Amino acid sequence: MTEPTKFQFSHIDADSSGNPRISALCFGILADHTVTQVLFFKFSQDHVALESASTTLSMTRQQLDAVRDSIAARVRPFVVEFVQNLDI
């Protein structure tokens, strides 16, 4: 078996009261192919599995204001690295 391929999609918006929320869809795909040979006969077997999960995270605007600086400090290195790796 090989390691599964994992990927996700995220969407950020606000609810009707203006509170921020993040919706995420996560997927994992695992594919396996086995070939068995006995004398002149070859047998093959394929297996594919798809797993998925979804979630929505939300907070009030007051909660966001309280943690805004901490969140910004946490993601800043990733944003800088992403921008540095852009092929412009």
Results as ranks from 00 to 15, higher is better:
T2C: 06
E3I: 01
P4E: 03
T5C: 06
T5P: 00
K6G: 01
F7N: 02
F7M: 01
F9Y: 14
H11I: 10
H11V: 10
D15W: 04
S16W: 06
S17E: 15
S17T: 06
S17W: 01
G18L: 09
G18E: 04
N19C: 05
A24V: 15
L25Y: 11
C26H: 12
F27G: 02
G28C: 05
L30E: 14
A31N: 11
D32T: 05
H33R: 06
H33N: 08
T34M: 06
V35K: 09
T36C: 00
V38K: 11
F41W: 08
K42L: 05
K42W: 03
F43K: 07
Q45L: 07
Q45V: 01
D46E: 09
H47Y: 05
H47K: 12
V48A: 04
A49Q: 08
A49P: 02
E51S: 10
S58H: 06
R61E: 14
Q62C: 05
L64T: 08
L64A: 13
A66Q: 15
I71V: 15
R74A: 15
V75W: 14
F78G: 12
E81K: 15
E81C: 06
F82A: 14
Q84I: 00
N85P: 00
N85C: 02
L86A: 12
I88F: 10
